[in-house]
């Protein structure tokens, strides 16, 4: 059998070109900037890995990275269990199904900046329904001045916006479980918890891998909502990597460090996603290799 066919490569060429223009060339431009310093508009000097060293050792980067990690961790810890819980509570048949699905899909249909604007106004203490009510009820709430309030506002907003995604994914996993599993569990006298632990959770595992990956990547790359709601403040309290990056690249026009930071940012997301994926699909791999020996 022929393992190499030169003509076949012509068929792949259009895709290669598309990917080149959409991903590889822009990425190489960033790589290009990250190893050079620029003066004026067109003078570039080779600086090697200097920008990488600078970014990696800067406290500003460390702080933003920590904020990102904390934010993503909180988001995953809230949205995944909450999403599963809501999916479990949703009806499986009847008119309630469509109602629930439409309600769940609604937040997902709203553009990011609109979500940001909605919450920016909603949480304002002078005219926002939420902010005003909280203040009137005696809470000392002001997201523009208090770090904790700003974080809570962003987290609640993200939970409101994105838990639906986890719900829909979990729900799709739940409805695909054949009824015989629930029947067998009743025959075996399993408790509600055992049904969840040994049937529903394992059967949802594949969609949960997707949910965790999507929610991690999205929350780690969050930009629009904090930009609209808090603008990174108060102080630097909600300045995430993405906001910091934009300030550096466009605000201060430090193209070199910004490019180096983009690459580091990109590699972190890639690495963490890979770790999640490997850990969560480990079981499948074990089962596959086990089949060979049995």
């Amino acid at each position: 059998m022929k393992s190499w066919n030169n003509k076949a490569w012509f068929l792949v060429l259009p895709v290669l070109l598309l990917v080149a223009f959409s991903a590889i060339i822009p990425l190489m431009t960033v790589v290009n900037y990250s190893v050079q310093d620029s003066f004026g508009s067109n003078e570039f000097y080779w600086v090697g890995l200097e920008w990488f060293q600078e970014v990696l050792s800067s406290e500003r980067f460390h702080n933003a990275l920590m904020r990102n990690l904390l934010f993503s961790a909180i988001i995953l810890l809230i949205e995944i269990p909450l999403g599963i819980a809501v999916a479990l509570a949703m009806p499986r048949r009847g008119w309630g199904v469509s109602v629930c699905l439409v309600l769940m899909a609604l937040p997902l249909l709203i553009p990011w900046n609109v979500v940001g604007t909605i919450w920016q106004v909603f949480a304002r203490v002078d005219i926002g329904l939420l902010g005003y009510s909280l203040t009137q009820l005696g809470f000392d709430y002001n997201y523009t001045q208090d770090t904790l309030d700003a974080w809570i506002t962003l987290i609640v907003m993200d939970v409101w916006h994105w838990t639906s995604l986890v719900v829909l994914l979990s729900y799709s996993g739940l409805v695909s479980i054949p009824p015989a599993y629930y029947q067998a569990a009743r025959i075996d006298g399993a408790s509600r918890w055992a049904v969840f632990r040994y049937i529903q959770l394992p059967k949802m595992r594949r969609v949960l891998v997707i949910a965790v990956l999507l929610r991690f990547m999205d929350s780690f790359m969050i930009y629009t909502e904090p930009f609209v709601v808090t603008g990174g403040g108060p102080g630097n309290a909600t300045t995430f990597l993405s906001i910091d990056l934009v300030q550096m690249a466009i605000g201060q026009f430090d193209l070199g460090p910004a490019a180096a930071m983009s690459l580091i940012y990109f590699l972190i997301i890639l690495l963490v996603s890979w770790v999640f994926y490997t850990v969560m699909t480990q079981q499948d791999a074990d089962a596959e290799s086990g089949r060979g020996h049995s």
Binding site: A180, Q183, Q283
Partner: peptide
């Protein structure tokens, strides 16, 4: 009552022995 269905129903995450023990452990 014990009932066996047309298609095998297993608790995927458990070993064979744990599967067999499951109805007993639920008591």
């Amino acid at each position: 009552i014990a009932q066996v269905f047309q298609f095998p129903v297993l608790y995927d995450t458990m070993t064979v022995a744990e599967n067999l023990a499951f109805p007993l452990r639920n008591r």
